[in-house]
């Protein structure tokens, strides 16, 4: 309940800011448009799930970073410390915006891919929904952790390094067969590969790097670990 109140406040205060709109909506839409040009090269079952994954990644990870950075700079985050909130409350509150934005972004991506491809393949919708929701949660948590841990200037840089590493090395953009063998293993270190594989399985009933069942387990573990670590780190950082 307290987390929802913070989410509602963040919605009014931050989520229509230019950085959020540019990184959360305009950038993924641009990427989707560019990727649609490469449909023939990689194939639809590679490109369309990648579009969803990139949209999720950027939409989900933009919210918390903006909200937390604004509050760090204005001193409001220090004020929140005096309120009866736990680390878990703060993690949930700051993740909710990213999760909502990510899921909304996936809706936009579905519309764009329907327009571009003329159809929307969805063989296993439950897996697709699971992939979108878990992806939104995991990407949002990553941005919460980074935004709390680093000062606002460095947080943007670190978040971008993480995001672009996921896009190029994390199993989103390039199929396993296209990756140099010495770099292919890196994909397994990023949650993006598991998110993308679950979405791909939900849409096209196929997978590339890793099967969707293992991916779901890994994502569940990653979310639990990230949520726990974020709550602990937030309390450590904010209550020295």
């Amino acid at each position: 309940m307290r987390a929802l109140r913070i989410f509602a406040k963040d919605l009014r205060a931050y989520y229509l800011k230019a950085p959020v709109l540019s990184w959360g909506i305009l950038f993924p839409v641009t990427v989707m448009a560019l990727m649609s040009l490469n449909m023939r090269m990689f194939g639809e079952s590679r490109v369309v799930p990648a579009m969803f994954s990139i949209t999720l990644l950027f939409a989900s990870s933009s919210m918390a970073q903006v909200a937390i950075s604004f509050e760090k700079l204005s001193g409001a985050l220090a004020r929140i410390l005096y309120l009866p909130l736990t680390g878990a409350d703060l993690v949930l509150a700051k993740s909710l915006g990213g999760i909502a934005y990510g899921i909304g972004g996936a809706g936009v991506a579905a519309l764009v891919s329907y327009i571009v491809a003329g159809h929307l393949v969805m063989i296993r919708p439950l897996y697709f929904i699971l992939g979108v929701v878990l992806g939104a949660v995991v990407y949002s948590l990553i941005s919460v952790l980074i935004a709390f841990y680093y000062d606002p200037v460095h947080a943007v840089a670190v978040l971008n390094i993480v995001r672009f590493s996921m896009v190029f090395l994390g199993g989103i953009l390039f199929p396993k067969a296209f990756m140099p063998p010495r770099l292919a293993w890196l994909a397994y270190l990023f949650p993006s590969v598991y998110v993308t594989e679950v979405i791909r399985f939900g849409m096209y009933n196929t997978w590339d790097y890793i099967d969707p069942y293992t991916s779901l387990i890994v994502l569940a573990i990653a979310i639990a670990a990230l949520a726990y670590a974020s709550a602990r780190i937030i309390i450590r950082i904010l209550t020295p």
Binding site: K9, R12, A13, Y14, F70, E71, S74, G75, A76, A78, R79, Y82, L83, P84
Partner: peptide
Amino acid sequence: KRLVGVVPELPSLFPEL
């Protein structure tokens, strides 16, 4: 935190609200 009300040194509520 329910027993105390704190006024920090610097203005620190949400400027956009």
